[in-house]
Deep mutational scan, measured.
Amino acid sequence: MTYKLISNGKTLKGETTTEAVDAATAEKVFKQYANDNGVDGEWTYDDATKTFTVTE
């Protein structure tokens, strides 16, 4: 399945996607992506749209 990340960081804003077997796997990928880009904030997940959002 395709999962989307919306980043509302102070230094990184935008969207990216990943293919993953489940939401937990996608979350690990996205949290590593955010960490690699210096984004640390509040996370939410919408199962209906398969979208994670991180806001700093």
Score class of each variant (00 low, 15 high):
Ala23Tyr: 12
Phe52Ala: 01
Lys28Phe: 08
Val39Met: 12
Glu27Leu: 15
Thr44Tyr: 10
Gly41Arg: 02
Ala24Asp: 09
Gly14Val: 15
Asp46His: 06
Gln32Lys: 13
Lys4Trp: 12
Thr18Ala: 07
Leu5Phe: 08
Gly41Gln: 02
Val21Ser: 11
Thr25Leu: 06
Lys4Arg: 12
Leu12Lys: 08
Gly38Gln: 06
Ala34Glu: 02
Ile6Lys: 07
Thr53Leu: 06
Ala20Glu: 04
Glu56Gly: 06
Gly38Trp: 05
Gly9His: 10
Asp40Asn: 13
Asn35Trp: 14
Thr2Arg: 11
Thr55Gly: 05
Glu27Gly: 06
Trp43Lys: 01
Asn8Cys: 15
Lys10Ala: 11
Leu12Asp: 05
Phe30Asp: 00
Thr18Leu: 13
Glu56Gln: 10
Tyr33Cys: 04
Thr2His: 07
Lys31Pro: 01
Asp36His: 08
Asn8Val: 14
Ala24Thr: 08
Phe30Asn: 00
Asp40Pro: 03
Lys50Cys: 05
Lys31Gln: 07
Asp46Pro: 00
Gly9Cys: 15
Asp46Gln: 04
Lys28Glu: 09
Ala26Lys: 00
Thr55Ser: 09
Asp22Gly: 03
Glu15Tyr: 13
Gly38Arg: 05
Ser7His: 14
Lys31Phe: 05
Thr2Ala: 06
Ala34Cys: 14
Ala34Gly: 03
Ala24Cys: 13
Thr55Asp: 07
Ile6Thr: 05
Tyr45Phe: 06
Thr44Phe: 10
Gly41Lys: 01
Val21Pro: 15
Val54Thr: 01
Lys10His: 12
Lys4Thr: 14
Lys13Trp: 11
Thr16Gly: 04
Glu56Phe: 09
Lys13Met: 12
Lys31His: 09
Gly41Ser: 02
Asn37Ile: 11
Glu56Asp: 09
Ser7Ala: 14
Thr51Pro: 00
Glu42Ala: 10
Leu5Tyr: 03
Ala24Tyr: 09
Asp36Met: 11
Gly38Cys: 08
Thr17Tyr: 14
Thr55Tyr: 10
Thr2Glu: 09
Phe30Lys: 00
Asn8Ile: 15
Ser7Thr: 15
Ser7Asp: 04
Val21Glu: 10
Leu5Gly: 02
Tyr3His: 04
Ala34Pro: 00
Asn35Ile: 15
Thr16Asn: 06
Thr2Lys: 11
Gly41Met: 03
Tyr3Ile: 04
Thr16Trp: 15
Lys50Thr: 03
Asp46Tyr: 04
Thr2Gln: 10
Phe52Tyr: 05
Trp43Tyr: 01
Asn35His: 15
Glu27Cys: 15
Thr11Glu: 09
Asn8Ser: 09
Thr11Asp: 08
Ala24Glu: 12
Val54Asn: 01
Phe52Thr: 00
Glu19Ile: 15
Val21Trp: 12
Asp47Glu: 14
Asp47Cys: 07
Trp43Gly: 00
Thr18Lys: 03
Thr2Pro: 05
Phe30Cys: 00
Ala34Arg: 01
Lys13Ala: 10
Tyr3Leu: 02
Asn37Leu: 13
Ala23Ile: 07
Ala34Thr: 06
Tyr3Cys: 04
Thr25Cys: 08
Glu27Pro: 00
Ala48Gly: 08
Val29Pro: 00
Asp47Met: 08
Ala24Gln: 11
Thr44Gly: 06
Glu15Ser: 09
Thr25Asp: 08
Gln32Ser: 08
Glu42Phe: 13
Lys10Gln: 10
Phe52His: 01
Phe52Gln: 01
Gly9Lys: 05
Gly41Leu: 04
Gly38Asp: 07
Glu15His: 10
Ala20Met: 02
Asn8Leu: 13
Thr44Trp: 08
Thr44Asp: 08
Thr49Tyr: 05
Asp22Glu: 04
Thr2Met: 11
Asn35Tyr: 15
Ile6Tyr: 06
Gly38Lys: 07
Glu15Gln: 10
Gly9Phe: 12
Gly14Ser: 13
Ile6His: 05
Tyr45Ala: 00
Thr55His: 09
Val54Asp: 00
Asp46Ile: 04
Val54Tyr: 04
Gln32Glu: 09
Tyr45Trp: 03
Gln32Ile: 09
Glu27Ser: 06
Asp40Ser: 13
Ala20His: 02
Leu12Glu: 06
Glu19Gln: 14
Lys31Ala: 04
Val54Cys: 03
Phe52Cys: 00
Thr49Asn: 08
Glu42Asp: 12
Ser7Cys: 15
Glu15Asn: 07
Gln32Pro: 01
Ala34Asp: 01
Glu56Val: 11
Thr16Met: 15
Gln32Val: 07
Ile6Phe: 06
Lys10Glu: 09
Glu56Tyr: 09
Thr44Lys: 09
Leu12Ile: 11
Gly14Leu: 15
Gly9Glu: 04
Thr44Arg: 08
Glu27Ala: 09
Lys4Gly: 03
Tyr33Ser: 02
Leu12Thr: 07
Lys50Asn: 07
Lys28Thr: 08
Leu5Ser: 02
Val29Trp: 15
Thr51Asn: 01
Thr18Trp: 07
Asp36Ala: 12
Ala24Arg: 11
Ala20Asn: 02
Tyr45Gly: 00
Ala48Thr: 12
Glu56Lys: 06
Met1Trp: 13
Lys28Gly: 06
Asp47Phe: 07
Ala48Asp: 10
Val54Gly: 00
Thr55Cys: 08
Glu19Thr: 14
Asp36Pro: 01
Phe30Leu: 05
Ala48Asn: 11
Gln32Met: 09
Glu42Arg: 08
Leu5Glu: 03
Thr44His: 11
Ala26Leu: 01
Asp47His: 10
Asp47Gln: 09
Glu56Cys: 07
Ala20Val: 04
Asn8Lys: 12
Phe52Glu: 01
Thr25Gly: 08
Met1Asn: 13
Phe52Lys: 01
Lys13Gln: 12
Asp36Glu: 13
Glu27Thr: 03
Lys4Cys: 09
Ile6Pro: 01
Thr11Leu: 12
Thr18Glu: 03
Tyr33Asp: 01
Lys50Leu: 10
Ser7Ile: 15
Gly9Val: 14
Met1Gln: 14
Asp22Met: 02
Glu56His: 07
Met1Arg: 12
Thr17Lys: 08
Ser7Lys: 04
Ala26Ser: 01
Val21Ile: 13
Ala24Ser: 09
Leu12Met: 10
Gly14His: 14
Asn8Asp: 10
Thr55Phe: 10
Lys50His: 12
Lys28Ile: 11
Glu15Asp: 06
